[in-house]
Design a protein around this nucleic acid. Structure first.
Lengths: 193, 193
DNA sequence: TCGGTAGCAAACACGCTGTTCTTCAAAATG
DNA sequence: CATTTTGAAGAACAGCGTGTTTGCTACCGA
């Protein structure tokens, strides 16, 4: 339904709009962005815009989808099962791409959908791994969904802080910090009985 | 500046508006709430509303301030320095008050200001405690601001999940879970060296 | 050469906002 | 008890942003 408009039209306008939107988002908060701003910046007409998108929110969703796809893409590439959570890959990806778009998205309250989706994606990835680790030693003292939520959230907290603070440390160090802080609790839980 | 209107007018209207707003927020997302909705629900006139508030956002800020004051109030009551973070008090408070307002706020993207403020408040509380614990054993391997950010975020992640999931466990258990998962990493960091 | 496609500009109706003005009732004041 | 003062209601209004419609242009492929 929501895809119809986008899919069967030219790529050009989409690129222009995405670029313009990303640019504007680094300058003012999502709520204050007008459709007119996007038109001006992208250099396209009103009609064209509404031929591709339903409204401003549709553009945001588009961007979020893109960004999420990039992130989960990098997650998938990482050999699974090795570590519980592919934290290093995510830190590295963000560091390498260094796009302001991601930063603006994470800071703004409009980025909540992205962060929520990431959290959910991480949880979906963590829980099975955790589950197999656990059946070997049976009966977890803490419900597994809670543990995955914690792990995903702990990672995202550090990730958010790091991106917001303009990535003051290299990705390797951030990964190491995450491992040191967040994982001992999980190991301890798995060991006891 | 922003306070002028609110402070010098009657309390009655504020109560009506707050109640109406909290009610509506459990029914539709913040973005979709119209001023007219508030007027209808609160049973007040347009003129009266704008005599007290600048706009819809002003109401939201008002509510956020209230909620934040309640939470930080409960934090302050907790004897400080005992534990690094007064997690139990926060779980208990949320459980006892059981207000839908808090839940709606946390779920909606409009609640980001509240969560950010809470995160900041927790950090401000954690860092000094952490700092004293650390000078005794000198030179932390991980920058302390990062550690406080992690701790506050790890707590809030669990808190958010718990509230969103309608508080399926008693506060004591949640506190215990938090202690088991999030703290070992911090102790380990403090011990080494 | 001609249909189809993608675009622009202008104009528009609509919905919501925030303001203004007029009226009214209930307090406060003497 | 009469009279100011105050807070609020209602209606009307201008302003702005949205999303749609219309008419026109340009390009592209058969």
């Amino acid at each position: 339904m929501k895809q119809q408009k986008r899919d069967r039209r030219s790529q050009r306008t989409q690129r222009l709009v995405s670029a313009a939107f990303a640019e504007i988002m680094t300058e003012k908060s999502y709520e204050k962005i007008l459709v007119q701003d996007i038109l001006d910046r992208a250099g396209i007409g009103r009609t064209t815009f509404y031929a591709h998108y339903f409204d401003k929110e549709d553009v945001l969703n588009h961007i979020v989808e893109q960004e999420l796809a990039m992130l989960t893409g990098h997650i998938a590439q990482a050999a699974q099962g090795q570590r519980i959570i592919p934290s290093l890959e995510l830190f590295v990806h963000a560091y390498a791409s260094a796009n302001q778009q991601l930063r603006a998205l994470i800071c703004s309250s409009a980025g909540k959908p992205l962060l929520d989706a990431l959290q959910a994606a991480l949880c979906r990835m963590i829980e099975p791994t955790l589950s197999t680790l656990c059946t070997e030693r049976r009966s977890p003292p803490i419900p597994l969904p809670v543990v995955s939520e914690y792990l995903a959230g702990a990672f995202l907290t550090l990730f958010k802080w790091w991106v917001t603070a303009d990535m003051p440390y290299p990705p390797e160090q951030m990964d190491s910090i995450f491992q040191q802080l967040a994982l001992p609790g999980v190991w301890a839980m798995l060991k006891e009985k």
